[in-house]
Design a protein around this nucleic acid. Sequence first.
DNA 1: TCTTTTAAGTCAATTGTCTTGACTTATTTG
DNA 2: CAAATAAGTCAAGACAATTGACTTAAAAGA
Lengths: 400, 400
Amino acid sequence: MNDIRPIRATSGTNHEGTSAHNRRVIIDALRLNGALSRADLARATRLTKQTVSNIMEELENDGLVTSRETVRRGRGQPSTPYGLVPEGAFAIGLQIDRHITRAIAVDLVGNVLIGKEANLPAGGPATGTPVVLQLVQEVRTELKLRTAQAEKRLVGLGVAMPGPFGIEQDGDDNPWMMGAWQRFPLLETLSAGTGLNVTLQNDAAACATAERMVGAAHGLDHAVCLYVGYGIGAGLILGGDLYSGAHGNAGEIGMALLTAGGRLTQLEHRASLASLYEHLGVDPMAPDIYSLIDRRAAADDPEILAWIEKAAIDLRWSVHLIETIFDPQTVILCGGAPAALATRLIDAMQPLLPSNADRADRPLPRLQLGMTDPWAVARGAAAEPIGHAFDPRFSAILKA
Amino acid sequence: MNDIRPIRATSGTNHEGTSAHNRRVIIDALRLNGALSRADLARATRLTKQTVSNIMEELENDGLVTSRETVRRGRGQPSTPYGLVPEGAFAIGLQIDRHITRAIAVDLVGNVLIGKEANLPAGGPATGTPVVLQLVQEVRTELKLRTAQAEKRLVGLGVAMPGPFGIEQDGDDNPWMMGAWQRFPLLETLSAGTGLNVTLQNDAAACATAERMVGAAHGLDHAVCLYVGYGIGAGLILGGDLYSGAHGNAGEIGMALLTAGGRLTQLEHRASLASLYEHLGVDPMAPDIYSLIDRRAAADDPEILAWIEKAAIDLRWSVHLIETIFDPQTVILCGGAPAALATRLIDAMQPLLPSNADRADRPLPRLQLGMTDPWAVARGAAAEPIGHAFDPRFSAILKA
DNA sequence: TCTTTTAAGTCAATTGTCTTGACTTATTTG
DNA sequence: CAAATAAGTCAAGACAATTGACTTAAAAGA
């Protein structure tokens, strides 16, 4: 009698879904192509001139776009391009790493306005959460002082930290593995502490998000970011969207197993900054380690070069694996590695292993260098709420 | 002056996109849950009762749904469930393999109505295309005889064959690698030869499509089908959709490199029916090879068991890799391997390697058995046009 | 048995959003 | 200076979902 089976279904949509989608499509087109006239937008989106005009008027009233100088392009009435207003929206990005946390404020077009960092005390979330909340608060306050409208145009707080999430791991007691943070109800805590919409992704995914919004993956539908940081992971842009898997752990290739020296080991143990620090015998906790590595790499320090040679073998394999499995348009090396190290790694990885990605008509290189500054992860974290609020996506048309 | 840069943008949508989406959502809900009343559908899709009623009337007129016996569920007017009409749509699926081709006809709910197979002569597309077209024509003719409406309800021809596509490979002259087929303009030829909409996917993707429509991946958003056939590949259901990559070659894990016996080799060389045939010294061209292997496996033939032991090592690694990289809800072993072999493979793969997929709250097993009959690939090929025509997808709301 | 409650489903009017076609404006071309 | 071309607006129309009142049919309770 009481048939309470849950019914599975996709949500339907209605006029508002249509309208929301079309707004996003227009914002996206302006982000990808720069300023465009209403007529250009109508052609590109296949909407009618009139529809575009109506939406543009709305967007202008909402402070998201403004008109630029008219341009004459041959016959006919000159067109009036419209461009995104950077101050149309803001987001805060937060990176939580092993011994450091960084918070930044970005605007609608991805400019970094403010960046602050702080040391994270040992002791996990119990002692770390107040530090993190304090840092976010500082950035938020400064943003408020700079731009009066910022507070009400703040679309969310994006958080990035190393994964995997929700797994009981071996060596979970090792503070470097961040197990305590990974099992902590971070979203709820930060949401309650800030009153903002909070989202979480792993650091590789955050890098991919950043590359997609303003970097080498801009406008690409299929790209994989190979993130080399303290750990190693892949951020996946598949079909135009970030892919996170069923539990947010997709792309954790650091945990992929490979046979090296006759025994099965994790990729992470062979090619990551952690393995470099170990190789060099330096303390990963040292505050200036990033610039130290950068300097030594730039000076072609033989110890570093030796590690690069070794790591390149496994990274070459990783690129081959990524190309074979994902069939992307390009692979982007990005993230926590200093620029001098990253460029040398890429050089050492040449020639890449033959793969399905060898095609005569490639418009993009198989492997390219992405962002390598220490703030890249935070930028990606900040890009997530912006993208969530403004990018065209299937779920955005569906009813709540 | 002449600024002819192409403008990149997502397409907008309008009322028809909305309506098309809502129709698809309803059909999808009926496929996933079986017959549902209009009120149930309204709740599940978040559409209003009235909207659902309007759409149901349309769908009934189009012959896609019919009412069932009314059911009393407590107080209130009894509800009238509606279910999909199997004869509402048909599709033809075509598998092209190394020495054999199979064509089937399926209906809207995935029933296989007709299946025919033929030997493919050596010589590639030049000699094979007429055979393939003939086979499709036979199935189509028989379908027409059985169901008067079938011809005008035929939504397309789905083709599946081994990948990768569009690559110049080593050993391309080897007829077993099907290089000539892979570079042949198959879509155009079949489209011209049949007048149908034709789509192409690799055999692993086809299996995943079949598992999604009527098999173990039914209703799952994140599932990977590990296809073990003459080659080995992965069919990827990511975020509710089949993922094919930038060039249709995503999931070609057979070409992934691993170190075995001290040297780098492809997974395909270690664990695939090709490697089994080689191990057994049998001719892969033998017409009854499938049942031969099935019988020998069922009888626990020691040579087969030896191969299974060896292949299980690499397949365990594959499952670990898939879980690590895709973070799916489940992995499904499916495809061209006979049932007796597949079940023994799964047993031999236990225990699986520890991975991110080890979670206390798993609702599904990490590895399960999917379809293993020789027709699975053709079924998946046939499922593609049906899914394309009736499943909710982002691209279906966009303007042409 | 009769009334009330509850739920399915319909009817008719309304609303929100895109589309259509005619029109205006501004520029280049000949 | 007229014709051609393109950007952009105006006002009416079309389409599809929504709303709220209504009808129908069954169960529950008095």
